[in-house]
Design a protein around this nucleic acid. Structure first.
Length: 406
RNA sequence: GCACAGGUGGGUGAGUGGUUAAAGCCGGCAGACUGUAAAUCUGCUCCUCCUUGCGAGGUACGAAGGUUCGAAUCCUUCCCUGUGCA
């Protein structure tokens, strides 16, 4: 691998304590430190649906996800680049990770065609035709300017037979190589992000971390391990992705409809082949109990639409289990959503009010529900870091998660 | 009092002789949601029974009668509601 220089300063990962396979650490990015294990809320369209950026900051969100495919279609990469990159555009001073669009190869099943070169998509917005290749996905992500960007991969569907899983894995490996090559040749400094007034608004990065990152930090490109549900393929995918060389590794292709026990099995089978000193990112996971479980297994980063989407659908996660706030039983319930939660929603509003907002289709229902769910997830991860830091295996905020509902 | 228009399941509202226990929507109940085509989607929602099935009975479209093989749908009377005129 001597041909390609190793990356200039992009991110650094420090492990501070471990407990078995679990670890707590710091991911130092051009836009601040991220304490790991971390849960990353999903903000596909440069927005965590329903929650303003300042509220996200107050909740303690340290890193957000954005999506290349969606932002490419609207408002367009060039537009965002001109407006200060994703950070400047959405006025988010902390870290951002963009997904490459690889997942849309999977989820937009009916609207795409995969070839060696890349993927031809039909826009879900207007039906227009677009191509994504490893190179163009890198170009787009360089334009967006997130701190961490992802290799362009193919998320293997489930179920997939052995031949299909291997072929898909091989394709992802070739795309990983192309992604890295293109990125190395074209990578740029992460834009600080410029506000409307022309001032630098991203003071956190500027003031608190200038020496760490030297102000000239580049983006970091992570590789993605595929291999379907076959531990052998996973091993091979991990080893060969590592050979290509990335500052962090993601486990992709899970949470695609397989049984949960299998997800865990594959995570364990994959994780043992990933380097201990690099961040490990499990993509698309999971429920509150799952994120705890995976942190215990040594996963450092996770993201999932579940807390935000479920919130908009009236499903709330609490220390006492799931609460479907839409139910009429809460119509006169004056109690807090979660008596053990200190979030701004639980300390201020009643279940009856939240239920009313939901039933009335008020936008505020989505806002408050999302704030609570994110708060619950972030609290859970804080507790996990605390426990692992103390050398204890983390446990879920409540046993409710592992108990069957009464 | 007269003239029109109406009275349908928890609400609203289709249906004007037979595949109608009765569309759709709302409400109610249950469920799904895991790198966001998702403020979305899926069931169920008269009663009883069972072998839970495009199952068997029973009720049901203001009330009571009638016509008809068959009526929410046609006729008669009554009750009620809205609008207009006195």
């Amino acid at each position: 691998m001597g041909l390609l220089q190793s990356l200039a300063v992009s991110i650094r990962f420090q492990i501070e304590a471990t407990c078995g396979p679990a670890r707590v650490g710091k991911l130092i990015t051009p836009h601040g430190e991220v304490e790991t294990p971390v849960f990353m809320p999903v903000g596909t369209l440069a927005s965590v649906k329903g929650v303003p950026q300042d509220v996200l900051e107050e909740l303690g969100v340290q890193i957000l996800l954005g999506n290349t495919y969606h932002l490419y279609l609207r408002p367009g990469i060039e537009q965002i680049r001109k407006l200060g990159g994703l950070h400047g555009f959405m006025a988010w001073p902390r870290a951002i990770l963009t997904d490459s669009g690889g997942f849309q190869v999977f989820s937009l099943n009916d609207l795409r065609k995969v070839t060696e070169e890349g993927v031809t998509f039909r826009s879900h917005l207007d039906g227009s035709s677009h191509c994504f290749s490893p190179e163009s996905a890198m170009e787009a992500q360089i334009g967006l300017g997130a701190d961490i960007i992802m290799a362009f991969d193919e998320c293997t569907e489930y179920p997939a037979d052995g031949d299909r899983a291997r072929a898909s894995m091989e394709l992802t490996l070739r795309w990983a190589e192309r992604s890295r090559r293109h990125f190395e040749e074209h990578k740029q400094e992460v834009p600080w992000g410029i506000s409307r007034q022309g001032k630098q608004v991203l003071r956190f990065a500027q003031d608190d971390n200038p020496k760490e990152m030297g102000g000239g930090a580049t983006q970091a490109l992570f590789g993605i391990v595929q291999g379907g549900m076959d531990p052998q393929l996973r091993k091979e995918s991990a080893e060969r992705t590592i050979e290509t060389g990335f500052p962090g590794y993601a486990i992709g292709g899970l949470s695609v409809g397989e049984p949960r026990a299998l997800t865990r099995e594959i995570v364990e089978a994959t994780i043992e082949h990933l380097p201990a000193d690099k961040p490990r990112y499990l993509m698309g996971v999971g429920t509150p109990e799952e994120i705890v479980e995976y942190a215990n297994l040594g996963i450092d980063m996770m993201d999932c639409v579940l807390p935000t989407r479920a919130a908009r659908h009236g499903l709330l996660f609490t220390s006492e289990g799931k609460v479907s706030i839409k139910q009429a039983r809460y119509a006169a319930d004056q109690g807090p959503l979660d008596p053990n939660c200190g979030c701004r929603v639980c300390t201020r509003y009643s279940r009856a009010y939240l239920r009313h907002l939901y039933a009335s289709n008020e936008v505020l229902a989505q806002v408050l529900n999302t704030v609570h769910n994110l708060s619950f997830y972030l609290d859970t991860m804080r507790a996990v870091r605390h426990s692992i830091g103390l050398g204890k295996r983390a446990c879920s905020l409540s046993g409710a998660w592992s108990r069957p509902k009464p």
